[in-house]
Simulated assay, not measured.
Amino acid sequence: MLPWRRLLRPLAVLALAAATLLPAGASATAATDTATASAPRSGWNDWTCKPSAAHPRPVVLVHGTFGNSVDNWLGFAPYLVHRGYCVYSLDYGQLPGVPFFNGLGPIARSAQQLDAFVDKVLAATGAAEVDLVGHSQGGMMPRHYLKFLGGAAKVNALVGLAPDNHGTTLLGLTQLLPYFPGAQDLISTATPGLADQIAGSAFLTELNAGGDTVPGVTYTVIATKYDEVVTPYRSQFLTGPNVRNVVLQDLCALDLSEHVAIGLTDRIAWHEALNALDPAHAEPTTCASVFS
């Protein structure tokens, strides 16, 4: 059984955000530029990096809800840079007056920010396409970009680490919202990015209508059965051509990573993501991949 503090943490954070944050509405462009400017300039977000013949596509990392371009990728970005990739990360979904904690604005607007950032990466690197790796919301939001904003022409692969592709019930807690009058409206107004991720939301209904994928892009979903945020965890999986759904514990039964750890610290997940970025040179992912 999950500890109570782990069970209650997502709901507490959601409620706190909805009750205290300012409504999204004003442009967050200045906040985006400031946060991106403060991101590491050595290793990743190096705008002088030129993709090699071995790794011709730059990798764009898309953080999760409450994350940002730096803290979500302190482990994985250097992991990729060390292996010869040009790596970039963006901030998106900012709320006015709320620093550091991003991914809270309307997801359709966040996808527009991703669109602009990918164009910037392509212009700087001269590459024809990028690969995207996203954690949580960052693994799902790019699908709006691919489907509705022309992103499929600029993206080769999307790798999602615990993505909420079909929303979340938050261990069933979202189903209690109707019993608290005004709660759902408050969440939708104050933190629309959270409301968009609730299973059955209008955003997700539109996103998944007509199929999960678009032609020309390969999709990899890497999930953990211990996920306590995106539940049920199999709702993360996609269906369609060019899709591979992976459960970490099928690769290493000893891997106990939950939702946060799969993106921040799990080298087994990272190894499998690396395989998705370079399938021609993929190596089996096992428990020993923690040492790779």
Rank of each mutant, 00 (worst) to 15 (best):
I222F: 00
L207P: 05
L251Q: 06
N165H: 06
V118Q: 01
G211D: 08
D91G: 06
A288C: 09
P99Q: 06
Y233D: 11
Q197D: 00
A123C: 11
L122K: 06
P40R: 08
A26P: 15
G75R: 02
T218A: 12
R244C: 00
Q249E: 15
N245Q: 07
A261V: 11
G84T: 03
E258S: 12
N208W: 04
Y79L: 02
A124I: 04
G25Y: 07
L104Y: 01
G103S: 02
P23T: 10
H281Q: 13
L158P: 00
P96T: 11
D250C: 04
Y179R: 14
F66R: 07
C86I: 00
L74F: 04
L251M: 05
D185E: 15
D46S: 05
A12L: 13
P106G: 11
R9Q: 13
T205L: 11
A39F: 09
E258F: 09
L146V: 06
S110D: 12
K154F: 08
N68R: 03
A280G: 13
R41K: 15
L204M: 01
G93L: 00
D196V: 03
G84I: 05
R83L: 03
D33T: 15
H259E: 10
N208S: 12
Q249V: 08
G193C: 02
G193D: 04
P215S: 13
P178K: 10
S235W: 02
A269T: 04
A15D: 12
A183C: 14
H55V: 06
I222K: 00
